[in-house]
Design a protein around this nucleic acid. Sequence first.
DNA 1: GGATGTGAATGTCTTCACAGCT
DNA 2: AGCTGTGAAGACATTCACATCC
Lengths: 206, 206
Amino acid sequence: MRKVPDSTVRRLAIYLHFLEEFEASGAATVSSQALARRGGTTAAQVRKDLSFFGSFGKRGLGYAVPELAGRLRLILGLDRRYRVAVVGAGRVGSALAQYAGFPARGFDIVAVFDRDPAKIGQPLDGGRVRDASTIEQVVRSEQIEIGIVVTPAAAAQEVTDRLVAGGVRAILNFAPAPLVVPSRVELRNVNLALELETLSYALAHR
Amino acid sequence: MRKVPDSTVRRLAIYLHFLEEFEASGAATVSSQALARRGGTTAAQVRKDLSFFGSFGKRGLGYAVPELAGRLRLILGLDRRYRVAVVGAGRVGSALAQYAGFPARGFDIVAVFDRDPAKIGQPLDGGRVRDASTIEQVVRSEQIEIGIVVTPAAAAQEVTDRLVAGGVRAILNFAPAPLVVPSRVELRNVNLALELETLSYALAHR
DNA sequence: GGATGTGAATGTCTTCACAGCT
DNA sequence: AGCTGTGAAGACATTCACATCC
């Protein structure tokens, strides 16, 4: 079961979303064909993706919707909730801290940090913004496993080091700066401007 | 010109960021090695990426920083500015509308739309939120080329259709819904929850 | 009949390694 | 010597096609 393509994992998460819609609409089974159409891929791709983890379907019938959804939740580690911290209470940071899509998928934002005294203490979605100098201690005491970095580039590495020192196991980085973390910490980068730049490339070449 | 991998385009945009840092610090030349280290890839990869578009370096020396930056701007279509509309003035939408990283890279947010009467007319970063029913007309009159969709899933296709009718050439979709657009319109999807879900997969498998 | 599961074939991307220029 | 540019090799991902089972 080792060596699963990244792209496969992304698609599994997409399939899960569709399965939950199907679940809600009461459908009992679904074919690789149907999943492929909704997910913008091919039936063979869907079957191959699933085959990395076992055989969950019935030949001639398809996949039992609730069962496959359950399996995918297990595979993706979404059968539990995660405690998450957001560092950076600027516009994007506060928006993420309040983004309904996160708790809906099992990610609870339990702390938000900033360095700016004007922001520290302000209420935000139930909690309040905490001083960035307390990151390490709060991450430890609140048992936070995931950190989201949304600071300016210049501060990103420093807050990352504190998150790591506090014991987070994964970091999602929105800052436009390359971060260094120990190999035990999982790192994913999202760069909003980069998305527009690849669009611009496509516009320029047609 | 041959078929250029998507991943290559992304990396070119990353190289450009670093080149601009080097430019600011006054360095005259840079090696593929140095670019690779900053960009988290290999020297061979950097050279291969660039080779899709020509030979910009000098053997034994490296690349002239300002020249290579200029070439990359041309390749990526970043030698001009783009007029962009944001649809959806919720938390994430307003944050994106005011995100400094966009104008810094040549993308000017010239209109923001929402359907909610409570939001329409409210000031936002110089302009004011406009009624979503005017999308088509405003996109046309304001010569908007790129639309960013940040609505709930249920409204995403409808606003997309209006953006397309108005004549946008590209759409960046943050809504957790698959969009259908004519093939002449370039489409890119960003799903924030998906990023955490792939992190969760990594956490569950180690 | 209908749809899965999967080896084999194909296609795409990355890495290697070295010739060739400065 | 130092570093680029690039075919060739290798690794990886997707698609095909068909045996297999309900």
